[in-house]
Structures are given as structure tokens and as C-alpha cells.
């Protein structure tokens, strides 16, 4: 095994490189995964959140039929699982767009209530006609209130990650601020990573055989540093203890975090393996190098000995 040159300097640079790389990974992850709707919509599809919302609404409308006297089917027949899922996804996309960019339009849950309104109105009208109930102010008020309450329920259920509520709360300006910081952090940590790597290359330029070792160490250390907490969180099922037990919210949030953890763990495992490969590569390079150096030294020694004997 060959010695590692400029050991203390390279050690220090490696530590700095690992720290800046972890910072870059985290900020890049926040910028390109957490603040983008893809992972959320994928989690919604995986967890079949459209069906969960539909089931929740069915349960609600079954209970709602008790004070209103309107059968639950009048409400539930007007609902569509795929449409509910699509609306939930759109709500997340719009909310994220606003939370990361204050210039974007404020999110609003878009849902076409036409079929639901028609269903409720038709049923109440038919019932009133059959029972001779006058269509007066009281009738209209009851109808309006029923429609309003059912709209509110659907709207509440579609905001599965409560992002629409966040967009309306005082958290929104803070998130606008943080999203700006994250862009800055990505730039800074990315630049720092490149800088330290360049310094390492320059510092060890006369010993390029050692570079794969340091690169491998950087990748391994950064991967393990992130793997330790993520594997721990996965093992104790930390995110399953999410406090909101409303099925549609709970399942979306826990499904999302599970997916995020799995993605992070997979990615870091690959990084760890690449790091190991680099270190193995260094061992191979060193073995070959040592062998070639020995051969050269032995050849020179033999040559010197021969020359001496001739003389």
C-alpha cells in the first residue's frame, strides 16, 4: 500500500468538502424535490388518495343525511374518484407554486360542483313538489345552506397536505423568504463543493493516484451521514406518529414521507457504493503502482550491479 501524501491537508479539505456536499445535497433536495409537486403527486397516486377522499366524503355524507334528510347517494353519486384525485394534485401544484414564488397567483381549490349542485337541487325540488312544500325564502335558505356545507366539506378534503391553508396563513411569507434562502444555499454550497474539490486536486496534483481515495471517502462519508438519521427514522416509523388522523391527510402525509425516505435512502446507498468503488479502485491502482515501482527499482538495481561487475 502506498502512503497517502499531504495527509493532514487532504484530511481537512475532505472534511470541508463533505460538509459542503451535505449542505448542497440538502438544499438541492429542498429546492428540486420538496418545492416541486412531482413527489407529492406521485405519493397521492401511490396511496390512492382519490379513493381515500371519496371514502371519507361518503362517510361524511352518510352522516350528513341524518340532519338534512337527504339520502347520502344524492351527494356521493355526483362524486368521481379520479376527478377528486386530480383536484387534490392541482391544489398541491398551485399551493407549492405560490409558496415558492410570491408573484404566483394565490391558490384556490378548483372543483366543478355543477353535478353535485344539480343532484341536491333536483332531489329537494322533487321532494318539495311531492309533499306540497312551498318554495319560499326558508326553502331557498335550506337549499343554499345544504349546498354550501357540502361544498365546504369537499374543499376541505381536497387540501390533503393543508398547503392551501398554509398559503393563506402567516407561514406563507416565511416560506417565500426560505425558498429564496434555499436558492442561495444551493449556489453557495455547490460553489464551495467545487472549490474544495479543486483545491484538493491542486494540492495533490503530483499524486493523482490518491485522488479516487479521497473522492471515495467524501462520497462514503456524506452518504453515511445522511443514511444514519434516515434509516433511524424509517426503522422507528417516525412519520406514522403524524398527529392528524383524518384519513385523507394522514395517508397522504405518511405516504409522502415514506416515499421521500425511500428515495433518500436509495440514493445515498448508491452514493455509498460508488464511494466504496472509488476506494477499491484506489487499492487496485496502488497495488499496480507499487508493483511497477518495485519492478523499476529492481531493474535499476540489477542494471547497477551488472554494470559494476563488468567494470
Amino acid at each position: 500500500m502506498k502512503r497517502l501524501y499531504h495527509y493532514p491537508l487532504m484530511l481537512l479539505l475532505t472534511v470541508l468538502e463533505v460538509l459542503s456536499l451535505i449542505g448542497f445535497e440538502c438544499s438541492y433536495f429542498a429546492q428540486n424535490v420538496l418545492f416541486k409537486p412531482d413527489i407529492y403527486t406521485a405519493a397521492i397516486s401511490d396511496e390512492k388518495i382519490g379513493q381515500v377522499i371519496y371514502d371519507d366524503l361518503c362517510e361524511y355524507f352518510t352522516q350528513f343525511s341524518m340532519p338534512t334528510g337527504i339520502p347520502a347517494e344524492v351527494f356521493t353519486d355526483a362524486l368521481d374518484v379520479n376527478y377528486l384525485e386530480q383536484c387534490a394534485k392541482n391544489t398541491i401544484s398551485d399551493s407549492l407554486a405560490y409558496l415558492t414564488n410570491p408573484n404566483a397567483t394565490k391558490p384556490k381549490i378548483q372543483y366543478d360542483f355543477t353535478s353535485l349542485d344539480n343532484s341536491i337541487t333536483t332531489y329537494i325540488e322533487t321532494y318539495s313538489d311531492e309533499n306540497g312544500i312551498e318554495r319560499d325564502d326558508e326553502y331557498q335558505k335550506l337549499l343554499d345552506n345544504t349546498i354550501k356545507t357540502s361544498h365546504e366539506q369537499i374543499i376541505t378534503k381536497l387540501d390533503v397536505l393543508l398547503l392551501c391553508q398554509f398559503a393563506d396563513s402567516s407561514l406563507a411569507p416565511k416560506l417565500h423568504q426560505y425558498s429564496g434562502y434555499i436558492n442561495f444555499a444551493v449556489l453557495c454550497t455547490g460553489a464551495a463543493s467545487i472549490f474544495f474539490l479543486l483545491v484538493m486536486i491542486i494540492a495533490d496534483i503530483k499524486h493523482p493516484r490518491d485522488l479516487p481515495y479521497w473522492v471515495g471517502t467524501i462520497l462514503m462519508c456524506s452518504a453515511v451521514t445522511i443514511l444514519i438519521p434516515t434509516i433511524y427514522l424509517k426503522k422507528i416509523n417516525y412519520f406514522d406518529s403524524f398527529i392528524i388522523r383524518n384519513m385523507h391527510i394522514y395517508q397522504t402525509v405518511t405516504g409522502l414521507f415514506r416515499r421521500l425516505l425511500d428515495n433518500v435512502i436509495n440514493f445515498q446507498f448508491i452514493t455509498l457504493l460508488i464511494g466504496c468503488c472509488f476506494i477499491i479502485l484506489t487499492i487496485i491502482i496502488h497495488l499496480f503502482y507499487v508493483r511497477s515501482v518495485r519492478k523499476k527499482a529492481a531493474a535499476r538495481y540489477d542494471y547497477d550491479e551488472n554494470e559494476e561487475s563488468y567494470n
Binding site: M1, Y7, T14, S222, V224, T225
Partner: peptide, 21 residues
């Protein structure tokens, strides 16, 4: 000694990084 250095360096860096974090 070199083999030890070679093997232990990643762990040393990991300990330093984790402690700093």
C-alpha cells in the same frame, strides 16, 4: 500503519463530520 490509515481515515472523517453537525 498505512493500511490502518487507509481504512480508518473515512471513519475519522465521519466522526469529525458527525460531531460538527
Amino acid at each position: 500503519l498505512r493500511a490502518f490509515t487507509f481504512v480508518l481515515t473515512p471513519f475519522l472523517i465521519l466522526v469529525i463530520v458527525l460531531s460538527s453537525l
